[in-house]
Nucleic acid binder design. Structure first.
Length: 422
RNA sequence: GUGGGUGUAGCUCAAUUGGCAGAGCACCGCACUGUGGAUGCGGUGGUUGCGGGUUCAAGUCCCGUCACCCACCCCA
């Protein structure tokens, strides 16, 4: 045997169990997206390097992207995020699209990072955006979608929360502290790091980027001020809308949330588990300049992205993993070699009637066949032996209850359907 | 990219100061020739991640390498 070839570092294999979970999440994302009137789209997974140079964070472009030269000499990037692609697609058809656009997508992304729990180099992300509406109610709709998704996968508001802030509010407050707008990116970075550094290390970092003592104190009191949102007319409207959307339990103001990406211009939000044990589940916000940055007219936009890996970890941690029976519920045994073709034919008939059926393919001992049926998660096992053939019947055993009875062939499909819904 | 931890059967893990590589679960078979889960008995399964070094002797010590995990960085 030759040695196993290693998978590419940071990639994940989706065995059927994991694939079932990924598809389940995809179906929940679809359900929630569509319930708010969003349409699915997809972009290419390869983009020109320059697309990201326009607006993504420097770290993301320079250090975390897979970049290579194709055979024609173009610099190509494996997409590390979707938003620039979305901005490009919108800019390219700006005159023929009718705004606002409500679009969503789920697909693979790549970032060349050091893999850790909840962070792989190849990952899947749900992206959902509302383009062409600048109102706080649009921001609230996206936060409500995030909250509705958390609820729909079984996460409670005591377990996960959508934390919201507004960069314009924060920038105004920083200016009031005498902090220059040019220091904004670095100061936002400092705020973003409040929970990660010790108080001393945090202040030292603040001094490094040129803040004085009173300014640091001012920032500290800002990010502890849970009522700060009341100073922002935009956030006032936002939270009024959140209330009427009925998701107020899931959404709250959090002045320390600021986000790392540079292109956010207004409202920003993240979803976290309340204990703060995991990474953020989603992140997003308003990005009013992005479409113009890739060559379109100025269009306001708001959206967020959620990775599949962290959501899965959080679901597992809170015991909300769905029960995803992957296999067919019906298993047709082969009594002996003489009945093989009749058994296969029986299974084919049942499939034509719309049932999901696994055929055993050889005349193993019935004991073994039942055992396999049980192991693959089948509910009903069908046996067609000499006794049944004589009476033109099929025996059906329900593995859950252990009950068994025979059905005439003509009544079998209906009998199975009834058993399956019981 | 920086710092640290771990790597033994398919899975979870043992193995004393360096001294014969083991257990549970899983799998296969039998008890059980028309019926799964339970029980009993038996069995398969390993180049101890990979490569080198020290030693009479290495799972154990040393060096390198790969992978995973943790903390930074950054973020989904």
């Amino acid at each position: 045997m030759s040695p196993l070839i290693q998978p590419v570092r940071g990639t994940l294999d989706y065995y059927p169990e994991e694939m079932a979970l990924r598809n389940w999440l995809y179906s929940k994302m679809r359900q929630v997206s569509e319930s708010f009137g969003y349409a699915e789209y997809e972009g290419p997974m390869l983009e020109r390097f320059e697309l990201y140079a326009a607006k993504s964070g420097a770290e993301l472009v320079e250090k975390q992207s897979y970049v290579f030269e194709d055979r024609g000499g173009e610099r190509i990037t494996l997409r590390p995020e979707l938003t620039p692609t979305l901005a490009r697609m919108v800019a390219a058809r700006q005159r023929q699209l009718s705004f606002p656009l409500r679009w969503w997508s789920f697909g693979p992304f790549w970032r060349y990072e050091k893999p850790q729990k909840g962070r792989s180099r190849e990952f899947f992300q749900w992206n959902i955006d509302l383009i062409g509406d600048e109102t706080p109610e649009a921001d609230a709709e996206l936060a409500a979608i995030a909250a509705t998704f958390l609820e729909s996968v079984g996460l409670k508001s005591s377990e996960t929360q959508v934390l919201v802030n507004n960069r314009q509010l924060m920038q105004g407050e920083l200016e009031a502290l005498g902090i220059k707008p040019s220091a904004r990116i670095e100061v936002f970075g400092l705020i973003d790091r409040r929970d990660k550094l010790s108080a001393q290390a945090w202040r030292a970092r603040g001094k490094e980027i040129g803040l004085d003592g009173p300014q640091l104190m001012g920032i500290e009191s800002l990010i502890e001020n849970q009522d700060l949102w009341k100073k922002s007319p935009s956030l006032q409207r936002f939270f009024r809308a959140i209330d009427v959307f009925g998701v107020q339990d899931y959404v709250r103001f959090a002045p320390h949330v600021i986000r790392g990406l540079d292109y956010y211009t207004g409202t920003v939000f993240e979803a976290w588990d309340t204990a703060g044990e995991f990474r953020s589940i989603f992140g997003g916000g308003r990005y009013d300049d992005l479409v113009s940055a890739v060559g379109g007219d100025l269009v306001p936009a708001v959206g967020f992205a959620a990775g599949n890996v962290v959501v899965s970890l959080v679901l597992q941690a809170f015991g909300h993993m769905p029960d995803l029976g992957g296999a067919a519920p019906i298993y047709v045994t082969v009594f002996d070699q003489d009945y093989l073709l009749q058994s296969l034919s029986l299974a084919a008939d049942l499939r034509r009637a719309g049932l999901k059926v696994t055929s055993h393919l050889s005349a193993d001992k019935l004991q073994k066949q039942f055992k396999q049926a049980d192991r693959v998660g089948a509910r009903l096992v069908l046996v067609m032996g000499p006794d049944e053939i004589k009476k033109n019947e099929v025996s059906v055993k329900d593995l859950r209850s252990g009950n068994q009875r025979s059905y005439p062939r003509t009544e079998l499909v209906q009998g199975l359907q009834e058993l399956l819904i019981s």
